[in-house]
Amino acid sequence: MSDADRAAPQEDPVDAVRVAFVCVQNAGRSQMSAAFAERERDRRGLEDRVEILTGGTHPADHVHDVVVRLMDEEGFDLSDRTPGEISTAELETCDFVATMGCSTLELDTSGGVDVRDWALDDPDGADEDDARAIRDEIEERVVALFDEIEARAEGKGA
């Protein structure tokens, strides 16, 4: 979130749904998930109701080249994104946390965090067709998650 976003008037943040996409390097699956989530949030008009986080436990220096290429095929430019770190404390403030099958995180879910391990193969090092299949599965999972998020946001707001 930028400083401008923090300064802008927003609805009560308690009403916001926070969703995070996490993997070790934050250079592949979680980056694709975040991009698809940003698109879903915009398509559904949930910009003021959903906050998207992404990060890794040991971030890489850059997004994997294959991920940049394959997401470009879908109209996403991830070439300027930089993998980042995300803390357990940040994740424990989320409503939903999707891990990509490589996480060793131990989150305190007593606060209501819904953690899902998507158990996805890593597109880095996969051949292009396998990497496309991973990308497409991520898109399907994000759309399904946003069906739930949208229902939750509508339940809190209206």
Results as ranks from 00 to 15, higher is better:
Val115Lys: 14
Ala119Arg: 15
Asp136Phe: 11
Gly112Val: 09
Ala131Gly: 06
Glu139Cys: 07
Asp129Ile: 07
Ala126Gln: 02
Glu140Lys: 12
Val113Trp: 14
Glu128Gly: 01
Asp129Gln: 01
Ala133Leu: 09
Asp124Tyr: 14
Asp129Glu: 00
Asp108Val: 05
Ala131Gln: 11
Glu128Thr: 04
Arg116Ser: 11
Asp122Phe: 02
Ala126Arg: 10
Leu107Trp: 00
Ala133Lys: 15
Ala131Ile: 07
Arg135Tyr: 05
Glu137Gln: 13
Gly111Met: 13
Leu107Ile: 03
Glu128Ala: 02
Ala126Ile: 05
Asp130Lys: 15
Gly125Arg: 01
Val113Met: 12
Val115Glu: 11
Ala131Pro: 00
Glu140Val: 10
Ala131Arg: 07
Ala131Cys: 08
Arg135Gly: 06
Leu120Tyr: 02
Asp127Gln: 09
Arg116Pro: 02
Trp118Met: 06
Asp124Met: 10
Ala126His: 04
Ala119Glu: 15
Arg116Asp: 13
Asp124Gln: 10
Gly112Ala: 11
Gly125Asn: 04
Gly112Pro: 00
Thr109Val: 15
Trp118Cys: 08
Ser110Gln: 15
Ser110Pro: 11
Asp121Gln: 09
Asp130His: 14
Ser110Leu: 14
Ile134Arg: 03
Leu120Glu: 02
Val113Gln: 15
Ile134Tyr: 08
Val113Thr: 12
Asp124Asn: 13
Asp130Arg: 08
Asp121Pro: 05
Glu140Ala: 12
Glu137Gly: 08
Arg135Lys: 03
Gly125Thr: 03
Gly111Phe: 09
Arg132Thr: 07
Gly112Tyr: 11
Ile138Gln: 05
Asp130Ala: 08
Trp118His: 07
Pro123Gln: 00
Ser110Tyr: 13
Asp114His: 14
Thr109Glu: 09
Ala133Tyr: 00
Asp122Met: 01
Asp127Leu: 01
Val115Pro: 04
Pro123Asn: 03
Asp136Cys: 10
Arg135Cys: 00
Gly125Pro: 02
Thr109Met: 05
Leu107Phe: 05
Asp108Gln: 11
Ile138Glu: 02
Ala119Cys: 12
Leu120Asn: 10
Ile134Asn: 09
Ala131Phe: 05
Ile134Leu: 07
Pro123Ser: 01
Asp130Gly: 12
Ile138Tyr: 07
Asp122Ser: 04
Leu120Lys: 09
Glu137Arg: 13
Ala131Trp: 04
Val115Leu: 15
Glu137Thr: 09
Arg135Ile: 05
Ala131Lys: 08
Asp136Lys: 06
Glu137Tyr: 08
Asp114Asn: 13
Gly112Gln: 12
Asp136Trp: 08
Glu140Asp: 15
Pro123Val: 01
